[in-house]
Amino acid sequence: MRRTRLTVVNPYPFPISVGRLGARLVSTSDRACKPTATNLRVGSFLGELPITVPARGRKTPGELEVAMPNTAADACQRTTFHLAITATATRVKR
């Protein structure tokens, strides 16, 4: 099991409140290694939410756990896995 640190970057000129973060496996660097849960498990977000990210700022609220299960295909050894990160945020009212 490995942990991947997530950093939230706010490109807007106002603060935002991030209420949810997640990820899903979307592709790999090797065609023989399919992007499925049998090859890589992406766990839930581990950290503190909600967080407020300042205008044009960044914060690192936590991590995701990822693990290669015993069911992983041999082709997945030394493969790069690509994750799509999702977040839900709202504008912070002053």
Rank of each mutant, 00 (worst) to 15 (best):
T38Y: 08
R31W: 09
F14C: 02
T7L: 05
V66K: 10
N70R: 12
R3E: 15
K93S: 04
T71G: 06
V26G: 10
A55L: 13
H82Q: 06
P13N: 11
D30I: 13
S44P: 01
A55R: 13
T90N: 13
A67V: 11
V9D: 10
P50K: 06
S27C: 02
A72Q: 08
Y12F: 13
A75L: 05
S27H: 06
T4Y: 11
P15C: 04
L83F: 03
A67D: 14
L49T: 10
R3C: 00
R3S: 10
Q77V: 08
Y12E: 12
P61L: 02
H82C: 03
P69T: 02
V26Q: 13
A55V: 11
T86W: 09
S27D: 15
G43W: 10
G47I: 00
L25C: 12
C33A: 13
S27K: 07
N10V: 09
Q77H: 06
P54A: 14
V8M: 04
N70M: 11
G19D: 15
R58F: 00
A72L: 07
F14L: 06
D30Q: 15
R78S: 08
K93I: 02
V26M: 12
V92W: 00
N70W: 11
T86M: 07
A72F: 07
E65H: 01
R58Y: 02
V18S: 02
M68N: 06
I85Y: 10
P61I: 03
L49M: 09
G43H: 09
G57C: 01
T80F: 04
A89R: 05
F14P: 03
R5A: 15
A55S: 15
R24L: 08
A75S: 10
T80M: 05
A67N: 14
S44D: 11
T71H: 07
L6Q: 01
L46C: 01
R5F: 11
A75C: 06
P15T: 00
L6M: 05
V9Q: 09
V18G: 01
